[in-house]
Nucleic acid binder design. Structure first.
Lengths: 100, 100
DNA sequence: CAAAGTACTTTCCCCACTGGAAAGTACATG
DNA sequence: CATGTACTTTCCAGTGGGGAAAGTACTTTG
């Protein structure tokens, strides 16, 4: 019933949650959604990639470089397990983390 | 949509969750339930008390000292809000992430 | 009565981690 | 060539968590 520390850190939890809701998200979108600096997002994204949870894709929009993030399958299941574990911890109180 | 850092730390989240499920819990029960050392529980409980989230009651069982913890009203609502914020972060956002 | 045990609390110490700023990289544009 | 964009990496504190060990205040035991 451990809470995966790679996911639990607030900033990474938010990154993973945003990615869980989409196929793919742009660097700038995630950064602005979370309100963090470039360096912070870049470092956390690398950490998530190293953990095997996030795929980092680089490409171009016109001639400008752009970076996209997406969850890997491993990332999706790690997130799902994280949420299950949260529920186990929190649920004795009757409160729930997931609706439904 | 901030995650209260006093509650978010895994050990404190577990303490608060255990207390949310009961009126009051003994020091030894919480320590054994979480599997942490005396010092760790003592320090986190103090931190929660300082934050106004936990009440620490001291008394005796026979002639032996004993300590009980319980959530204050403030602790209960902080926990409820924490869980609401978690939900907002974790539940599928419905935002459109892919740019045009 | 001294030694040992109970039930914590506090101190000590170290390591991991976090975030922002600043510098660096790579390429494109004026 | 200087500037700008889009990040990445380095540098640099500050925070915080955990265990071990020492401390506190009694109580029990030999």
């Amino acid at each position: 019933m451990e809470l995966d520390p790679v996911i639990h850190a607030p900033t990474r939890l938010q990154i993973v949650s945003v990615l869980a809701a989409a196929e793919e998200a742009e660097f700038g979108f995630v950064r602005d959604t979370l309100g963090v600096s470039d360096s912070v997002l870049s470092k956390h994204a690398s950490a998530l990639e190293t953990a095997g949870y996030v795929r980092i894709r680089k490409g171009y929009v016109g001639k400008r470089p752009r970076t996209w993030f997406s969850l890997t399958e491993q990332g999706r299941s790690a997130f799902a397990e994280y949420v299950r574990n949260l529920q186990k911890i929190v649920s004795p109180s009757g409160l729930t983390v997931l609706p439904g």
